Computed example of a mutant assay.
Amino acid sequence: MSLRRAVEWVWYADGALPAVLRAALAPLSMVFGYVVSSRNSRLDRELATAALPAMSIGNLTVGGTGKTPVSSWFAARMLARGAKPAIVLRGYGDDEWRVHQLLTPAVGVTVNPDRRAAMERAKAQGADCAVLDDAFQHRRARRVSDIVLVSVDRFQSPLRLLPAGPYREGWPALRRATAVVLTVKAAGDTDVERVARVVREVAPSIPLAVVRLVPDRVCRVQPVAFAVDVAEQPSTAVFSSCAVTENGNESHEVGWLRDRSVLLTSAIADGDALERQVVSLGARLVRHLRFPDHYDFSADDVTRVVRAAEGAEGVLCTLKDAVKLAPLWPRAAAPLWYLSQTLVVERGAEVLERECDRVLAARDATVPTVG
């Protein structure tokens, strides 16, 4: 069992042993909570004006809420409404910025742990607003919209802070958000209502929306489809929208998966929800090879996946995995596919539009007029 899988077993598993381990870690969680509270008080005093009107997309947990597709969705929405947004992110691993460029190729992506410096760079490149991917806890840069994502699939009650659980902050932190968005992958309506009740009880005045990440296509990945001609990824780089291209020559509706034998591989935070989605589509799952979130695949890892897929009709992964696997994928191996997903707003479309309004109003107030 990998370290990541062991940690998730402690966080989420039922049974006496993981419960004992969580109890043993509880004192450290209390210390962690105190440190977070002190840090938040300090950051409240250190907020600085940002170069661009910004929307933050974040969460309370360690990954698994769908920040990347939601951030891209908001950037695309503001682009459609006449803005020139930039997506700003810290840049964990070598996958997030590539995925953003595939989902929103007309939007510039700036990678830098210093969000304020990143926005200054994006502004110099022509952006007039920013979407901060994973920035709820990165609060030194002021934002006009603060959206928190809560995964229904990974919802945990009672909430447990790190290291006994996956939470960076407790439920009361939702009260400093301008909106809460429940993200759903494989969970049902009953679970959505259960989580919505908890959020309403904790933060009754914060607007709530629900979005579902729905599989819509199965796309063939060519071995060089995602290759990037750069020697390294500078932490402060600004990547053009043409740095990565998606090969769309062969794709199918998700019904194509029914009764097909596939090996599933993933390096994402919530592999369980992905697996449930694939099974619900009728695929015959040979095996699910899991790697840690943001994992940097090696040639040996690819060899392991290819061997495990012998006899299967293909290998299925996510877009986040495909951008890293494609440059390493042997041409003679089983076909590599990724499951494309689309964001469907199930509830609270007006909430999402109001958050865009916040950013666009701030943008209009700062854009100089002629005359």
Results as ranks from 00 to 15, higher is better:
residue 306 V to G: 09
residue 146 D to H: 04
residue 212 R to W: 01
residue 119 M to A: 07
residue 20 V to Y: 03
residue 330 P to K: 03
residue 117 A to Q: 15
residue 189 D to L: 15
residue 25 L to W: 06
residue 146 D to T: 10
residue 223 P to A: 02
residue 312 A to N: 08
residue 24 A to T: 09
residue 205 S to P: 01
residue 293 D to Y: 05
residue 34 Y to T: 12
residue 337 W to K: 02
residue 290 R to W: 06
residue 58 G to F: 00
residue 79 L to Q: 13
residue 198 V to Y: 12
residue 288 H to A: 11
residue 330 P to H: 07
residue 220 R to K: 12
residue 320 K to P: 11
residue 8 E to W: 08
residue 141 A to L: 05
residue 226 F to D: 01
residue 31 V to I: 15
residue 242 C to N: 14
residue 207 P to V: 06
residue 192 V to C: 11
residue 349 A to R: 15
residue 350 E to Y: 06
residue 153 D to N: 07
residue 287 R to W: 09
residue 244 V to K: 02
residue 119 M to Y: 03
residue 150 V to D: 03
residue 13 A to V: 10
residue 66 G to W: 00
residue 212 R to D: 00
residue 114 D to P: 07
residue 148 V to Q: 00
residue 300 D to H: 09
residue 291 F to H: 03
residue 132 L to N: 02
residue 282 G to E: 12
residue 140 R to K: 12
residue 330 P to D: 10
residue 228 V to A: 06
residue 176 R to H: 12
residue 146 D to S: 12
residue 233 Q to K: 06
residue 49 T to S: 12
residue 290 R to E: 05
residue 274 L to K: 02
residue 142 R to G: 02
residue 199 V to I: 13
residue 37 S to F: 11
residue 157 S to K: 13
residue 2 S to W: 04
residue 111 V to Q: 02
residue 18 P to C: 04
residue 62 V to M: 11
residue 240 S to N: 04
residue 194 R to G: 00
residue 126 G to E: 10
residue 5 R to S: 14
residue 27 P to V: 05
residue 286 V to W: 05
residue 47 L to K: 14
residue 244 V to I: 15
residue 48 A to E: 13
residue 213 L to P: 01
residue 219 C to P: 00
residue 365 A to H: 10
residue 223 P to L: 01
residue 169 E to C: 03
residue 170 G to S: 10
residue 48 A to T: 13
residue 101 Q to H: 14
